[in-house]
Amino acid sequence: METNPDTTTEGMDKEYWELRLYVAGQTPKSVAAIANLKKYCEQHLLGRYKLEVIDLLQHPQLAEGDQILAIPTLVRKVPVPIRKIIGDLSNEERVLVGLDIRPIESKLTR
């Protein structure tokens, strides 16, 4: 068990995360989602991620490209495959599972 985190961390080191969060205006859900996501990224993916927040109220034409229906939606563009997480991202464990970030690391940081 002790060796595993090291290998995963090493494996994850090579990976780069490109995330896109779609929101619509400054609704409570959107604000919560941005705050939650930033927190997780800082904790787990420090220096290895790129986060783009898209406000669909300003760029409605972008919604079609990523097949956005629900707001807020987090899209993991890289690494492939593309994954989507909807909701205000309040459940950390599910977000990490959804993004395929090993939760074991979060346990360690906690």
């Binding site: 409605p60 919604a63 707001i71 593309i82 909701g87």
Partner: peptide, 23 residues
């Protein structure tokens, strides 16, 4: 809409659909 691609965490609405349709 593909269920397998979507993970649900917390509250959400379908504003995206509205925006797309509205656009």
């Amino acid at each position: 809409v593909d269920r397998s691609e979507i993970e649900e965490t917390g509250e959400y609405d379908l504003e995206g659909l509205f925006i797309r349709l509205g656009y």
